[in-house]
Simulated scan of single mutants.
Amino acid sequence: MSEPLLARRGLSLDRLETFCRVAESGSIVKAANQDPVRQSLYSRQIRELEEFFGTALIERDGRGIKLTTAGKRLAQLAREQFAALRDFQQEVARQPVTLSIGSGNSVLEWVVTPQLPQLCQRLGNVEISLLNLRTRQIVRDLQDLRLDVGIIRKDAVTKGLKTVSFTKLTYAFFIPASWARKGVQQQLQSLPLALAAGESFQPQFLTAAANAGFTFRVVVQCSSFSQAAELAVSGKFIAVLPVVANDRLRKLGCVSVQIPFLEKCARELVLAWHPRLSAMRPIIPTAIDTLSALPGR
């Protein structure tokens, strides 16, 4: 079956690896680390692939490149095969099989990390990479077969990805315990609020609060829930955080306060993966089954 592929020159693992590297970098110059000799080599290898397949794989895009439709397809196929070959190499060498999990920092810290001992125990000889990524990047990396498993909002899932329910994130106000003892739960609107901006959380929170008749004094705009949590722990701010942070923050001197309108901010999280990559990498469906069955999420 491989005779037609091997009958002509121009196709090799080295050329495909170069092509994937350039595709990921978006530039031959970046992929070659600005080395002129390597740039020339990479350009020649891509031309040879284009001649072999008889179609353009890249096109100029300003100072960089972008993949053609055929180029996107070839990059996906090459990544699948490289992933399977890497797994096989690690398996026969009895090395840990790699698994990448991408999500926001707060989900990784408060939901995934506490479950890692059980996950590693059930997966066996595995090396897990936890990647703090924004939702759009997770979806893009899943589609491009550069990420094994993503934990994202259900409403962010795009066509072509498979999903299974993971957990529901609900939110609460977290207040320094010294303030809570003074009964300031009823004065939340007057307290300095550290609020995570996120990709959609802040406007969702502010809209839900306004609809419920609340106006809060946002003093610090944070780029993550973890930053807001640190400010709450400092004893100088209140913060709106996922309820899953409660056990950890209670030990650090914070108490949580539930306000009914925060239910409007709740988010369904799913485990997402690309079926083409999971078909090549048995570790992915095993990880999905294990993560979805873990208690205490």
Rank of each mutant, 00 (worst) to 15 (best):
S2P: 04
E3P: 12
A7K: 03
A7Y: 07
R8E: 15
R9S: 13
R9N: 13
G10C: 03
L11D: 09
S12E: 06
L13H: 09
R15Q: 09
T18K: 06
V22K: 05
E24K: 14
S25W: 02
S25P: 01
I28D: 05
Q39C: 11
S40P: 01
L41A: 10
Y42V: 00
Y42C: 07
E51Y: 10
T55N: 10
A56P: 06
I58W: 08
D61Y: 12
D61H: 13
R63F: 03
I65Y: 10
T68K: 03
G71T: 07
L74K: 06
A75P: 05
A78M: 06
R79H: 14
Q81L: 14
Q81W: 11
A83V: 11
R86F: 00
R86N: 10
Q90M: 02
A93H: 02
A93Q: 11
A93K: 05
R94F: 14
Q95C: 00
P96C: 12
T98V: 06
L99E: 04
L99H: 07
G102W: 09
N105T: 09
S106C: 12
L108E: 03
Q115A: 14
L116C: 08
P117A: 07
P117E: 08
Q118F: 05
Q121N: 03
Q121M: 01
V126L: 01
E127L: 13
S129L: 07
N132H: 11
R134D: 06
R134H: 14
T135D: 08
Q137T: 11
V139G: 02
R140S: 11
R140M: 07
R140I: 04
Q143M: 05
Q143E: 15
L145M: 08
D148E: 06
K154H: 14
A156M: 13
V157I: 13
K159V: 03
G160T: 04
G160W: 02
G160N: 12
V164W: 02
F166E: 03
K168E: 13
T170Y: 01
A177I: 08
S178E: 14
S178M: 00
W179C: 07
A180W: 03
R181F: 03
K182A: 07
G183Q: 01
Q185H: 11
Q187T: 01
L188A: 00
S190W: 02
L191N: 02
L191S: 05
L193Y: 08
A194M: 11
A194I: 06
G198V: 05
G198L: 07
Q202V: 00
F205M: 10
A208N: 06
N211F: 01
A212D: 10
T215Y: 08
V219I: 11
V220P: 01
Q221F: 04
C222Y: 03
S223K: 13
F225Q: 10
S226G: 04
A228H: 06
A229I: 02
E230C: 05
A232C: 15
A232T: 06
F237S: 00
F237D: 01
I238T: 04
A239Q: 00
N246M: 14
L249W: 12
K251P: 00
V255R: 12
V255H: 07
S256C: 12
S256A: 13
V257A: 08
Q258K: 14
P260C: 04
L262W: 04
E268Q: 15
V270P: 13
W273E: 06
R276Y: 03
A279V: 03
P282E: 09
P282I: 09
I283P: 14
I284A: 12
I284S: 08
T286N: 14
A287I: 00
I288F: 09
T290E: 13
S292W: 01
A293H: 12
P295K: 13
R297T: 08
